[in-house]
Structure formats: structure tokens, C-alpha cells
């Protein structure tokens, strides 16, 4: 299949709606299985950390929430760029759908980080580079939600949000490398894809489960929001009315 016909297919809200409908049950089942299984494993079966004790068990929710919050932002910025360059309507819908999910995950990352910080560092919060840049990520998501609501015109809203999403993407490498560039209470990454991870395999395995579970959860909820947005924007088309009211009418 040629690139342009693939692009047209993916850009068609109708095709995307039907295709994503088949994915939903798989994403839902697999993400809940991995999240639930990984959490039970990490909460009850993994031995305690020799320095942090049991507070380290927060890792199984904190790291997935943080990683997916950043991944979601990159996805949103890419969708924004696709919308700006090729005027793809579907990309604008995806972009709008990501903002509330990303904001929720960033909130979760900040909150679980604070709760983990108290017994480990002795403080809920420090204004260091990592935590401050993640707080900025949270505000970027809120800014995109607010910007969407500030416009009456959908196309103008999508254009403005795409620009903000792309400009804000500069924050992502800052978050990622903040623990190495600046002095920080926050530890550097323990998982490495190029070298050896500094986390013990018994602790790493459940983390891999909840991390992949959280990515799948993000994909699942993203499809739910995007599909609702497709129905809303295409409400005057025959195919949407047929889906909602049944074929026979």
C-alpha cells in the first residue's frame, strides 16, 4: 500500500472509528490485567528495598504515570505537527483527547512523588529541576485544555493548541535529563535500555508489567476520548447517525 493511501485511510475518522472499535476490548483487558497483576506483585510479593524499606513500592505507580505522562505529551506534539502540516482533522481530535489524560497522569506522578518523598527524603516537595519541570508539564496540559475552551471556532482552537503543544515539547528533554544536568534530590533513571539497569531484576519485572500496562491504558482511554470526539464532530453525517440510532430507521 502506498504511503499516501495509508495516510488517507488513517486520516479518515470513519475508518479510524471502525478500526479502533476492534482494538478496544483487547486494550482494556490487557491493560487492566498488567496493571492489576503488576501492582499486586509489587505490593505484596517483591522484597522491601534495603534502604527505603516498603515506601519504594510506590515506584510501581509513580514511574509508569511519569513515563506515560511524558510519552503522551510527545504524542500530542506530534499530532499537533501533523495537524498543522497536513491539516489532518483526526490529528486535531487526538490532540484534544490527550490533554485531559496527560494532565491526570502528570497529577498522579506529582502526587505519588510527593507521598514517596516524605518518608524517603523527609519532605513532600523541593523546588528542584526534575519536580519543577514536571510541574511545568502539568501546567502545559492545563494550558492546552484552557486554550481549547477559549475558542469558539474549532479550527482556530486546534491551530493554537498545536503551536503551544509543539513549543512546550522543549520541556520534555529538560524533564528527562534534569536529574543529570542539575543537582537534585531525585535519583537518576534506574532503567537503562543501552547499559545495565541499576534496579534488581526482582523489582524490575513487576515495574515492566505496570509500565506496559500504563501505556496500554493510555491507548485505551485515548481511543475512548477520540471516538467520542469523532461522533461529536461528525454528528451530521449519515454513518454516525446510523451507528447511534441503529441501521434500521
Amino acid at each position: 500500500m502506498s504511503i499516501s493511501s495509508t495516510f488517507h485511510k488513517w486520516g479518515s475518522p470513519r475508518w479510524f472509528y471502525q478500526f479502533s472499535g476492534r482494538l478496544l476490548p483487547w486494550l482494556a483487558g490487557l491493560s487492566l490485567l498488567l496493571l492489576l497483576g503488576g501492582c499486586i506483585w509489587g505490593l505484596a510479593f517483591v522484597p522491601a528495598d534495603y534502604k527505603q524499606g516498603n515506601s519504594f513500592r510506590i515506584i510501581y505507580i509513580h514511574v509508569p504515570a511519569s513515563a506515560v505522562a511524558m510519552g503522551a505529551y510527545v504524542t500530542m506534539a506530534v499530532a499537533g505537527a501533523i495537524h498543522l502540516i497536513w491539516r489532518m482533522k483526526l490529528a486535531a481530535m487526538v490532540m484534544k483527547a490527550i490533554a485531559p489524560i496527560g494532565a491526570s497522569l502528570t497529577f498522579l506522578a506529582l502526587l505519588t512523588g510527593a507521598v514517596w518523598g516524605k518518608p524517603t527524603w523527609g519532605t513532600w516537595w523541593v523546588w528542584d529541576a526534575r519536580i519543577t519541570s514536571v510541574l511545568i508539564l502539568f501546567f502545559l496540559y492545563l494550558g492546552i485544555i484552557a486554550l481549547h475552551q477559549a475558542f469558539e471556532n474549532r479550527d482556530a482552537a486546534a491551530k493554537a493548541c498545536a503551536v503551544l503543544a509543539i513549543v512546550g515539547a522543549v520541556n520534555i528533554p529538560i524533564i528527562y535529563w534534569s536529574v543529570e544536568w542539575w543537582y537534585s534530590l531525585h535519583q537518576p533513571a534506574s532503567i537503562s535500555f543501552t547499559g545495565e539497569s541499576t534496579i534488581h531484576p526482582t523489582m524490575l519485572r513487576p515495574l515492566m508489567a505496570t509500565l506496559s500496562g500504563m501505556y496500554l491504558f493510555f491507548a485505551w482511554v485515548l481511543l475512548l476520548f477520540t471516538r467520542a470526539e469523532i461522533l461529536d464532530r461528525e454528528r451530521n453525517t449519515r454513518w454516525v447517525q446510523d451507528i447511534v440510532c441503529g441501521e434500521a430507521r
Binding site: S55, S104, F107, L108, V115, W116, F217
Partner: peptide, 23 residues
């Protein structure tokens, strides 16, 4: 959890609420 239970369980409780409310 040798004293860390409230921190750990609070984190997981909030996570269930936040993820559930997204759905």
C-alpha cells in the same frame, strides 16, 4: 508495611480514583 503503609496505600488509592475517573 513497617510504618510506610499509609503512604503506599494512599498512592495506590488515589491512582485507582484518577484512572477510574478517566474511564
Amino acid at each position: 508495611m513497617s510504618g510506610h503503609g499509609s503512604y503506599v496505600w494512599f498512592s495506590y488509592g488515589v491512582s485507582v480514583v484518577v484512572l477510574g475517573s478517566l474511564i
